[in-house]
Each structure stands twice: as structure tokens, then as C-alpha cells.
Design a protein around this nucleic acid. Sequence first.
DNA 1: CTGGTCACCTGGAAGC
DNA 2: TGCTTCCAGGTGACCA
Length: 269
Amino acid sequence: MPELPEVEVTCRGIAPHLVGRTIAAVAVREARLRWPIPPAVRSLTGRTVRAVTRRGKYLLLDCGDGHLILHLGMSGSLRLVAAGTPPGKHDHFDLGFDGKLLRLRDPRRFGAVLWTAQPPEGHPLIRHLGIEPLSRDLDGPRLHALTRGHRSAVKQFLMNGRRIVGVGNIYASESLFLAAIHPRTPAGRLSAKRSVRLAQAVKSTLRTAIRAGGSSLRDFVGSDGAHGCFQRRAWVYGREGQECRRCGAQIRRIVQGQRATYYCPSCQR
DNA sequence: CTGGTCACCTGGAAGC
DNA sequence: TGCTTCCAGGTGACCA
């Protein structure tokens, strides 16, 4: 379930429980994630977590002499559980603190647990990431400038992490609906005015989802993590054939870059 | 550089 | 009931 809002909510949820605390144990039950969990991760015991931050969909745990880089892939989730809680089938990795465990569950194993002793912003996976959509870096003029010369569809442009990070498949469709822009519009042909609308739509879509997820932050402790009950009530995502909530037209599903896109053919031009 | 396709992996839902 | 097929919230690698 992780797009930027889910990662942000996870970041906020776990940070207060980790920052200032010392890693007492590390458990690697399945090292074969997207990349193998490196041996260095097994010897993090004794480090104190100084900060938990997010860059794009990557979570960064500052451990003083290096950073633990976590990515949730398509199916990953992090939860805090009581020490001693028996791991489930897909609970591949734990970071143990006094009395609790930060536990990574990832059925599809597209996620990642990596270690870097260098500044994380220089890491190969982080270095090429685009601008943060919730920061001041993204606004209409900036989006307009970024899209110039790009022939790809605006939906795919939004999802390209080298330009803008964190806008995944759901929120790309939702943002384009809010901005009333057809997902197949060539990015480079967006007017300045439509760029302003789209930048605002992206921010508002992500913020709304964060707010919805933020209301369940306490679930990060002890719960069985029936998360994901996020923004439900999408405008278009997953609603093929149903009526547009705004105009009543039938929502359409198309495929772009092998990913489903949903839109309202009447509202979005 | 851009843009398009493939691959990685498991599980749940729908179809027969 | 059981087997098959399709689909899923990400993104790096590779090729033209």
C-alpha cells in the first residue's frame, strides 16, 4: 500500500518510538528482498537512532555513523510490536529496542533494507530522486518548467521519481482528476495555468491522504496493522464503470506503462 | 538525455 | 472444490 502518504505516516508513527533509543537486537529472517539485506545491517546493535526521516518513499534511520535505508516496495509495512511477538510468515526483518520491535512485513519482497556509511543523499538510490511534492520546490511554475520538452503522458510524468518523488499510481490518477486533466495529455503541452492546477492538486491529494492516515497513528504500536484504510472514497481510482462523483459519467480504465489509470472522460480533458 | 519494456515476488479475487 | 488467470499501491536495469 505504500505511496508517499503511507510512508510519511509510517515515518511519523515510528519516529517517536525510535529516536534516542538504542538498537538492542537485529533479526534478519529473510535477507532476499529486492536486494539482499547486507551483512552490515546485522551488526547495528548498540547504535542509537538519532532521527527518522523520509526522502521520496525511502525511510532513513540516522544511526550516527551511517543510515539504515528502508523501502516498503509494493506490499511492505512497518509496525511496532511488543518484544517477543512471534513473527508471521512474511515478517522478514526486526530492529529490536528495549521492549519493542520495529517489524518489517513484506509479502512480495519488493522492499529493501540497506545500509550506507556515506551521507544518504549521495546514495545511488537517493541521488537521482526528483523534488518533494509537499515542499515549496513544487509549484505551478516549477512543474511547468519541469515538464517542458517531455512527450510522455502527464500521468507517467507524475509517476517518474526522477522528476517528482512519491506520486504513485493511485494518487497520480486522483490528482489528475482534481486538476481536471486527461491522463494522456503530453506533459510538455501542459499550459502554465494547468500546471498550477496540477501542482495544487498533487499537494492537496497527498495532504488529504496523510491526514486520513495520520488519524490512525496510534495503530503503529501494538496493533495488528489493519492499516491501509486510508483515503478510501477515491474520486476515480479503482472505480471503472461506476459513476463519476462529480458529473455522473462512467469512469474509464486505461493502461499506461503497464499500470492502470482511471479517469472521468467528461471531467478530464 | 528521453522513452518504452521487463523483471523481481506473493497472494487474493475472479473465472471456469 | 480446485485449477487457472489476472491483477496489485514500486522502481531499477536495460535497450533503442
